[in-house]
Design a protein around this nucleic acid. Sequence first.
DNA 1: CAAGTATTTGCAAACGCGTCGCAACTAGCG
DNA 2: CGCTAGTTGCGACGCGTTTGCAAATACTTG
Lengths: 139, 139
Amino acid sequence: MSRVEDMEAALRRAGVRITRQRSAILTVLSTAEDHPDANELHGRARALDAAVSLATVYRTLAVLEEAGVVHRHAFEGGGARFEAADVPHHDHIIDLDSGEVMEFRSEKIEELQAAIAAEHGFELVHHRLELYCRKKRQP
Amino acid sequence: MSRVEDMEAALRRAGVRITRQRSAILTVLSTAEDHPDANELHGRARALDAAVSLATVYRTLAVLEEAGVVHRHAFEGGGARFEAADVPHHDHIIDLDSGEVMEFRSEKIEELQAAIAAEHGFELVHHRLELYCRKKRQP
DNA sequence: CAAGTATTTGCAAACGCGTCGCAACTAGCG
DNA sequence: CGCTAGTTGCGACGCGTTTGCAAATACTTG
């Protein structure tokens, strides 16, 4: 069962109709290796099916986020960027020079975050951790 | 020497002119106990001096950020929020229900972040760590 | 498998937040 | 105090995103 079929099944369960446009967008998201923004997704989706408007991309992304099948990121500068949610949780490193986004995961940091929230009497719902970096120049 | 005077001195050193408007904005920032956005700052500044336009608030905030006397935050939902920079570095806990912003600092997390950046061949320039939380309900 | 209905779509106009060009003003210099 | 470059207010603009509306369509039900 493909990632797209999994996502569509999850959406149907949530009472969301599967339209041509939504399938196209899901296909794009499931094959993306990067973190595209709405405009980029629109371009890629239209390559699969000309009948996808930008407004629908935005509306669909809202639906997909609501259903938990995509994650929305708001890195510094520029608009929101998206990523299929069916991958293990991770945080991001952003290269300030190239804009490239990389992923990492630190169990230790995850634990510390939960501990800090608890110390303050809170339950951690989600977090955002972004490291804005520059390539280390080796001397 | 007040915080406003310190900030003005830093700005003069950077070759920035101190106008009535900028003084008003600095006063507002130095007395704010929260993390106001540009519009809120505009309202508070106008209460001190009617001659402050929103455009000037934005322009001044850009200057202040450039000079390092304020920090800009972009929490989820809504526009940028600001905070005087003459306080020790910290990260933020955001209460999802009330929108309230709290501060914390974890030396351990700071170290781990730097280590992770280094592992990936990067130099950490700055980071963003936000914990979105809900009050723990005690059973 | 056709009809019915609630959802979804495209379009274009509207939005919110932030920026900018321009003429008038003013801080800080001499 | 007068000069001049830096700063301001205003309204227009830009960009990413949202929305109202009429037409199109996915899923239900007979």
